[in-house]
Amino acid sequence: MDRISKEIRENILRIAHHSGHGHIPTCFSIIEMLRAVYESMRYNPKQPDYDERDIFILSKGHAALGLYCTLARYGYFPISDVFSLGVFGSNFGCHADRFKIPGIELSTGSLGHGIGVAAGMALGFKLSGNSRKVFVLIGDGEANEGSVWETAMVTANLHLDNLTILFDNNRSQSRCLPVTNPEEKFTSFGLKAMTVDGHDVSAIKEVVLCPVEGTPRAIVAQTTKGMGCPTLVRDVFAWHRRSPNSDELKILLGELNETSV
């Protein structure tokens, strides 16, 4: 884990502690995916709505804090703004509002929505003859929702090769309804699917940048909930929606710093 990934995670921990909010483990599982996307797509933090930008949608909206801290790292706003998370009057909610935060393309929260909207954007760009690309990040838990697979079928049928689905396979549904063999499932639904190490920014970028033709792409990112802090990984369900107190923050920051670079 490099310095940037650690810095983003440290901010997540400090803001979760400060605010009393945050889905820390699920935020920790997507940081490298977010970085890979933002280091591959066309965006401009100084002009977030510019016409030719590519689109990123966080369909698993409860990981908003992870996205906020990543957007701050890539220049959309100062990280200090995010410390108001969840406060009445703050722009930063536990689920993002596209009218309040630069860089947020869709207000999400309820699972299974972002992928369909992303498909509509991708179709729109193709009909316009536009080269803009759309990236959408969904979770394995989210993939319990039928709308995910409904949309997957449609994207393949419409040949939306400007759409990339990033599948955060952090196995959050292991206690409930596991989504086994996601690569096989996406392939059988007609998408070009591949599996990568979800914590290797370079590996993810390599597949994100690799051109595909005629089919949408599903990148199954093998990830670990709470990646970077063994306490979170070990007790992932207890930490699903917890924020650390002062003592726990020290422990988690210590664990994060000890994670090999």
Binding site: G116, V117, G120, G124, T151
Partner: peptide, 15 residues
């Protein structure tokens, strides 16, 4: 697939 129909309409509007 009505759910996808509506979501895609939202996306097309954004586009």
């Amino acid at each position: 697939c009505e759910n996808t129909l509506i979501s895609m309409a939202a996306g097309m509007s954004a586009a």
